[in-house]
Simulated assay, not measured.
Amino acid sequence: MMRRTLFSLFRSSSSSSSSSSPFSTTSKVNIFDRQLKRNQRDRAAWLMPQNDPLLHTVADNLLDRLQDVKKTFPSALCLGGSLQAITRSLRTRDAIQKLIVMDASYDMVQRCQNDYHASNNPDNTETMFVVGDEEFLPIKENSVDLVISCLGLHWTNDLPGAMIQSMLALKPDGLFLAAILGGETLKELRIACTVAQMEREGGISPRISPLAQVRDAGNLLTRAGFNLPGVDVDEYTVKYESALELIEHLRAMGETNALSQMNTMLKRDTALATAAIYDSMFASEDGTVPATFQVIYMTGWKEHSSQQKPKRRGSATVSFKDIQTQFGNQS
């Protein structure tokens, strides 16, 4: 019964891309190797700890935005990223009646499904687990009330296109919630790696993926067609025993580099130099090394007649000059 209910949310094969691959994309520039990223997430599915403080903090902060909204969201789509943290938090919220959990990694979807069935907190939420790619969203238009992506969309080659597809999947007055890593993420590691490469190799090559800047987030929401866009930023500092422990954490999260043009072999002496420079430049008094994770939170609504709209241009009844005069007299 559950399968029959949710199947109508998915696009039929006749409406999909003409490409035979389910992971095809219309992006002309492939910054990231999507197959490599799927492989990394397959590995992360079994390396990721049951309770990762960073991932759960970001997931909880993202879902806290639902508390500021009075309406309910009976059907929700959860895309990639921190799937386990998001689905666990969602199970404590009674408003969600139907949930689709989707990831490009089969192993990640399987891990989430296993966790769901092993949960000691059974609920009445109809849940479907789907293998699919954010770059080609297999969801019918106007079919879900809520789309959530927690730390996943920053790996797409066509971020505006992925957000447009999310907007189309939403019903009118549906809500889009997303958290992506921002450009200040791992700034310490970027500096240490650059210095090490200059010293050992006489030049630099990209080792850490490019990430969106805060100033771009609002434009992305507007370009995707969302109304009432909202953007805010948090920075989290995580302390590690060493730079190598940081790398292991990134690997367990599935957040290691996936650049298409990346030189895959990092020389051993360069890697050791990076760790040494990281420690010498950023180590704290207690011997730990910090790593910065900048998270950009984005919210946007699909257009609906009930939403607030800006007044017609030229309809103002008070001029800025009058306002300035009034407040100037009060001072």
Rank of each mutant, 00 (worst) to 15 (best):
L137M: 08
S75E: 09
R91V: 01
T299F: 02
L266N: 09
T92Q: 14
N124R: 15
S242P: 08
I180H: 03
V289Y: 04
S205A: 12
Q35I: 04
M2N: 13
K239H: 14
T26I: 12
L250G: 07
S8M: 00
L55P: 02
S331G: 12
P290M: 09
G161R: 06
E255Q: 08
K71R: 14
A271T: 07
A179I: 07
T222Y: 10
K239E: 15
T256V: 10
E184H: 06
D158R: 03
R3D: 13
M128F: 02
R312P: 02
A273Y: 01
R313M: 15
G152R: 05
K321A: 15
I323Y: 14
I86Q: 09
S315F: 06
S119Q: 07
C193L: 14
A283Y: 03
D234T: 04
L151V: 10
G328I: 02
S8P: 02
R91E: 10
Q50E: 15
Q67R: 09
T125R: 12
S89P: 00
F23V: 02
D286F: 02
P49A: 08
T92I: 06
I139N: 05
Q324G: 09
L151N: 11
Q40S: 12
S280F: 00
I204M: 13
I247Y: 11
V318R: 15
C193V: 10
N329P: 00
D232K: 12
F176P: 10
E241D: 15
V233D: 11
F282W: 04
P290C: 10
G254I: 01
D133R: 00
S143H: 09
D232E: 14
Y116P: 04
L168P: 00
L266V: 15
D279L: 06
R190A: 13
G132T: 09
L47H: 10
I323H: 13
L266E: 07
D216A: 14
L177K: 07
L55E: 07
D103A: 03
G225F: 05
D216K: 11
D60I: 12
K140D: 15
Q40F: 00
A276T: 11
M102I: 01
D286Q: 02
N61K: 15
T264I: 12
A178N: 10
G254E: 00
T26H: 14
V195Q: 13
T274K: 06
V238R: 13
S209R: 05
T317Q: 14
I277M: 01
I139H: 04
K37V: 03
K171T: 12
F226G: 10
G254K: 05
S27T: 05
P22K: 02
R3V: 12
Y116E: 14
V295E: 08
V195H: 12
